[in-house]
Design a protein around this nucleic acid. Structure first.
Lengths: 110, 110
DNA sequence: ATTACATACCTAATTTGCTTAGGTATTATA
DNA sequence: TATAATACCTAAGCAAATTAGGTATGTAAT
């Protein structure tokens, strides 16, 4: 996703969070959207993204809908009911991670 | 470090940040301190910590000082000059990661 | 007309950072 | 005298990336 390996472990959370906000998205669109939102700072590589989408689908957290646009296939992903619960859990874990990291790196907050 | 795999990739940053604040620390002390600072939410496992300390030392970012306290050996680690620069870089990357994650998961900030 | 880039999907080998599960040894506590 | 705490360590395995490919269509540039 970057040279920076802090993002390791965060991809599922990013994907589910985006889908929660946007309803449905296809893989390529996710890569563009993340880059846009982070002002080009974070680039989700396809080699990381597609296996993650497949894994989330296999776990029953995402469902797929095929679409043909301009003679090209798109696979739209959206969150299932089961996925909604897991998304909430992952977002809570992310918030907890962020606050823990903030006290760890900022002595004033300790 | 936890069931949560968001922490993957953050251990070097945590260690260097603590050493920057506290001057010198030994491994076991780092595990206690992290647990204390995060109110027991984050437990750094020794299987993760010691190899990381050795790696940071091998990279020249940390130096070691042996001490014998109560007939037990302690290895105090402290940041080298080279390590100070890398610590600053890693802390900047962490801050950037946090702000990127915040806009990604919080639609209001986008 | 052809090259190059953008769109849109994919996989497989390798690397990396951690977990899990051990190990040694001393001191303090129940 | 057994257990927990202190204090160090390693090695096998797992999981999530990276790296480096692949296929195919549409669009813009030379």
């Amino acid at each position: 996703m970057q040279k920076n390996n802090l993002y390791k472990g965060s991809l599922s959370t990013i994907v589910l969070s985006l889908l929660k906000e946007q309803g449905k998205m296809y893989g390529y669109q996710i890569t563009r959207e993340v880059e846009k939102i982070t002002n080009g700072q974070l680039k989700v590589t396809e080699g990381a993204l597609y296996p993650t989408l497949h894994k989330l689908e296999a776990k029953g957290l995402l469902s797929v809908e095929m679409a043909k646009v301009n003679n090209r296939v798109r696979k739209y992903y959206f969150i299932t009911e089961k996925g909604k619960k897991e998304t909430a859990n992952l977002l809570n874990e992310m918030k907890s991670f962020i606050s823990n990291m903030e006290v760890l790196i900022n002595p004033k907050l300790a």
